Amino acid sequence: MAKHVLRGVTVVYVLFLLVLPVALITWRTFGDGLGPFVEALTSPSALHAFKVTIVVAGWAVLANTVFGVGAALLLVRGRFPGKRLLGAFIDLPMAVSPVVVGLALILVYGRFSPAGGLLESWGVQVIFSTPGMVIATVFVALPLVVRAVVPVLEELGDEQEQAAHTLGASHLQTFVRITLPGIRWALGYGIVLCLARSLGEYGAVAVVSGRLVDQTQTLTLFVEERFQNFDQPAAFAAATALALIAVVTLLLTKLLRPKDRIDGN
């Protein structure tokens, strides 16, 4: 009896919290057919928002992938003072509000800060431009690749890597031929999670971007701006596109989940 009650509560909870809102947005989007949906997503502003989103997410995923693999190797294979502190700092974005992150980046890289003023004197604008949006997105998605790879590296151990070094393999050769094949599923899983987080980021990006229409507007900011300006078809169309991306991401994470694939086969 308790199992049936728990199952019913879970289904109702998911239904009203997730399924029903997404279903209503989808219904409002396609209520007048496919034409308005296509027209809304092919407008110049929407296409520009897609472009900015892809650029920001792409750089953020690339940076977090490189950092994530390096940090995971350092945390698992390295022995040094402050190792636990480093792990705590890597997890910090999970605890800090993205809005706080955006405000902190403005204090560091804003025009009137020492670092920001120096960069602007060199012709590099960080805040209210793409670099600031990339930095904010990198920060909020920082732990995802690291935390996906670390458990797999711990499970793999370092016996094969030590054997490769004994046989004369360099660190790069060992990584490419031994370590990378062993973590590829976990790495793919972390990359997909990082991409999903980067595509859907709003708070930090909203602060550092300035929300400049057709300049620093990502797809999430486009949804808000269109809705506030009573362009509901465009807002619903963009929201549906984000929901479809989320569904695809969910399917990919299920396929790439590193469970039972520790051996890399």
Rank of each mutant, 00 (worst) to 15 (best):
Q162K: 14
S198I: 00
V192P: 04
V76C: 06
L15P: 04
T42W: 06
D158N: 07
L256W: 02
T10E: 06
T137W: 08
T249G: 14
F50M: 11
L119K: 01
E155H: 14
G68N: 13
I54V: 15
V52D: 02
P233Q: 12
L156D: 01
A196C: 07
V56N: 14
V149E: 08
Y202K: 07
T220F: 13
L180G: 09
A163H: 13
L119W: 01
L199G: 03
L107G: 10
Q160R: 15
L256D: 01
A237L: 07
T218H: 12
A238T: 11
A169K: 11
V52F: 02
W122A: 10
L212K: 15
T26V: 05
L119A: 09
V192Y: 04
E155D: 15
A60S: 15
I25C: 06
A2M: 15
P93H: 04
E39N: 09
L105A: 05
P233G: 12
L105H: 04
A238Q: 00
A71I: 09
A115D: 00
L153R: 11
M94N: 13
T26S: 06
I127C: 01
Q228L: 15
V11K: 13
V99K: 07
L153F: 09
L107D: 07
T29V: 05
V149Y: 03
G8H: 08
G58T: 01
V247W: 05
P44K: 13
L180E: 09
G188I: 09
W122E: 06
N265H: 12
G117M: 01
S170Q: 13
G35Q: 10
N229M: 00
M133A: 10
V149T: 10
R257S: 04
P114G: 04
S170E: 12
V108L: 14
I183T: 10
L86E: 00
S43K: 04
S198G: 09
D260G: 08
R211Y: 11
V247H: 03
A60T: 06
A234T: 10
Q215T: 09
V176E: 08
I127R: 00
V138M: 10
V140A: 10
A148P: 04
T130G: 00
N265Y: 14
V213H: 08
T216S: 07
R147V: 02
A71N: 06
N229L: 09
I245R: 11
V213R: 15
L187E: 07
A72D: 09
L255P: 01
R79Y: 06
I127P: 01
R211E: 14
A2R: 15
A115F: 00
S170T: 15
W27A: 12
A243H: 13
V61R: 09
I106N: 05
P233W: 10
G132L: 05
E39R: 10
L167H: 11
V19S: 03
R77S: 05
G168Y: 11
L47S: 02
P21W: 08
L242K: 08
V19H: 01
G110K: 03
L199Y: 03
V52E: 05
Q125N: 01
D260N: 13
W27T: 02
L34C: 05
